[in-house]
């Protein structure tokens, strides 16, 4: 058994600091195990979110040695234990307590995105037909576990705090899943361009790099959506019709 040192951010909305802990580690341990061990033996009130402990629920997001990661999927043997391991809450969201942040903004944003609207069923029994390849394409987006690490790392949100103007990578992936769903008939392009601020993304791929589900957020979700938005907004034919209707309706 060896000891490892940790510096865990303790505090709340009025401030906080890194606190030193040391705990025994064993083979295969992940950061969340160490946090739980510290919680059970040294700091009973250490606040942390977690559920599945297997990378499936996306609850235990944190910044480990400055990197946005899931605590349950970060093995201690891949970290340099010669130095203390720092564990901090996600910085793009307001702190609640210790490692827990207020992520409620994400849930409000999701509600603003128009929901799935399927075409009429394909068969008399009310069912649809879809091909596996269509499913596979959309499943890449639907793999998302809503850990919000992509939101945490996105500089538009983290540095510029444009939460009111930009929905963030998670909700661009969500919109992509809806827009590319083979049965969906809703149109979300105008909101994407305006209220949801897709133009703010300058495709630095930070979100893609931190995604624990390896969703190619930028290449497969954001860029195709940007293309659709551009086609929609700057389609010359649409523009022409727009101009003509304006003329007719004009004073």
């Amino acid at each position: 058994m060896t000891q490892a040192r940790f510096q865990v951010w303790r505090g709340n909305s009025s401030g906080g600091k890194l606190v030193d802990y040391s705990t025994e580690i064993s083979e295969g341990m992940v950061v969340l195990d160490a946090i739980h061990q510290i919680q059970a033996t040294q700091a009973n009130d250490l606040a942390v979110r977690w559920n599945c402990k297997a990378g499936k629920c996306g609850s235990c997001s944190a910044e480990i040695n400055g990197q946005p990661r899931l605590m349950c999927m970060t093995r201690l043997n891949e970290l340099d234990l010669g130095e203390p391991v720092t564990v901090e809450p996600m910085r793009a969201f307001p702190p609640v307590r210790d490692l827990v942040t207020d992520v409620s903004w994400n849930f409000r944003v999701k509600k603003q995105i128009k929901k799935f609207k399927p075409r009429p069923p394909d068969a008399p029994d009310g069912t649809w037909r879809m091909q596996q390849e269509d499913v596979d394409r959309v499943q890449e987006y639907r793999k998302c576990i809503e850990c919000f690490l992509c939101q945490d790392v996105c500089h538009v949100l983290r540095d510029h705090q444009l939460h009111e103007e930009f929905v963030g990578p998670r909700y661009l992936v969500y919109t992509a899943a809806l827009e590319m769903h083979p049965l969906d008939t809703e149109d979300r392009l105008s909101e994407l361009r305006k209220a949801h601020g897709i133009g703010y993304c300058n495709i630095t791929k930070c979100c893609t790099n931190v995604c624990p589900e390896s969703i190619r957020i930028t290449d497969n979700a954001i860029i195709p959506l940007k293309e659709r938005v551009m086609d929609d907004a700057f389609d010359p034919l649409v523009k022409l019709i727009g101009l003509m209707t304006k003329k007719v309706a004009g004073p």
Partner: peptide
């Protein structure tokens, strides 16, 4: 089947059913 109407995407048979 109702879940499919709400957007779920299950894996498919060759003829496109669940």
């Amino acid at each position: 089947r109702e879940l499919e109407a709400w957007g779920a995407m299950f894996d498919r048979t060759p003829d496109g059913r669940i």
